[in-house]
């Protein structure tokens, strides 16, 4: 029982350390990450459009993928704004 508790404490401690180090991510790092995500979604939207244009994707799915890309882009833009204006 005791040993279990000590182990649980260690796990909690490790989790806390990890959490703190993650929250302490610098604004620059977060901005960089958001920018990469933004580029990824822009590239996704382009690829989906190309694929749909050459007939590789059904219209129905192309619309779903485009919508996902749009949502992802909007979220990344918002994160980018938050990261650059503390």
């Amino acid at each position: 029982m005791r040993r279990g508790r000590v182990f649980a404490h260690r796990v909690a401690l490790l989790g806390a350390v990890a959490a703190v180090s993650a929250c302490g991510k610098s604004p620059e790092a977060r901005a960089k990450e958001a920018a990469a995500t933004l580029r990824s979604w822009q590239a996704t939207a382009r690829l989906v459009e190309e694929e749909h244009a050459r007939g590789a994707l059904p219209r129905e799915f192309a619309a779903q993928a485009a919508r996902a890309a749009e949502q992802g882009r909007a979220k990344a833009e918002q994160q980018l704004r938050q990261a650059s204006s503390p």
């Binding site: 990469a36 995500t37 580029r39 990824s40 979604w41 590239a43 996704t44 690829l47 989906v48 694929e51 050459r54 007939g55 590789a56 994707l57 059904p58 799915f61 779903q64 993928a65 996902a68 890309a69 992802g72």
Partner: peptide, 25 residues
């Protein structure tokens, strides 16, 4: 190669539609 990371499942069908077209989808 296009700098796309996978954040949603909707991106994964592109893996097969790109090389194999509509059949790939």
């Amino acid at each position: 190669v296009r700098g796309i990371q996978v954040d949603r499942y909707e991106q994964i069908p592109l893996l097969l539609s790109t090389p194999l077209g509509r059949a790939g989808f």
